[in-house]
């Protein structure tokens, strides 16, 4: 029991340490929301990595794996993200690349996110149907991601 408590303390201190390094003096609610949405983006990237790896022929095409990744992406696009994007979590906060324009154009953001749902659904239909079909759907998916990143994400590489 004592050992568990110590382990938890060590873990929480370690966790706090990294958070403090990355986001000093940030409202914890905003920091948590940023973490959630960045993790959401990471889940997209991981699953798109499976599809893209096949599309670029870095890894062999596998219909089941492609289908699973595409279904994950489609499911992710339908999650309700309203609590991920609190006001004040824009680029004024260190670690945030979310431009203030998001909160000034919420209708446009929503319409672009609906386009993403459509593009992900098209990929879900295509991914298991052969390498050519998967490759054909990549551009549409990339375009839907990029449509939001064009106006609403800080460009900085």
């Amino acid at each position: 029991m004592k050992r568990l408590a110590t382990a938890l303390t060590v873990l929480s201190v370690a966790g706090f340490g990294t958070t403090a390094l990355a986001q000093d003096d940030v409202d914890p609610a905003i920091a948590a929301a940023m973490k959630a949405r960045q993790a959401h983006m990471q889940l997209y990237a991981h699953n798109i990595g499976v599809l893209g790896g096949m599309a670029r022929e870095r890894i062999p095409y596998d219909a089941d794996a492609a289908q699973a990744a595409a279904s994950n992406i489609a499911a992710l696009t339908t999650l309700n993200q309203s609590t991920y994007w609190p006001e004040g979590s824009d680029t004024s906060v260190e670690g945030s690349k979310a431009l203030p324009a998001i909160w000034e154009n919420l209708d446009d953001v929503m319409s672009k996110s609906e386009d993403l749902v459509m593009a992900a659904a098209a990929m879900e239909d295509a991914a298991g149907q052969g390498l050519g079909a998967l490759q054909g759907a990549m551009g549409g998916l990339g375009g839907a991601c990029g449509a939001c990143h064009e106006d609403y994400r800080l460009s900085d590489d």
Partner: peptide, 12 residues
């Protein structure tokens, strides 16, 4: 496609 090698996308 706009996807980087890490499958981030083009922006701006």
């Amino acid at each position: 496609s706009g996807f980087t090698p890490d499958f981030d996308t083009a922006g701006g």
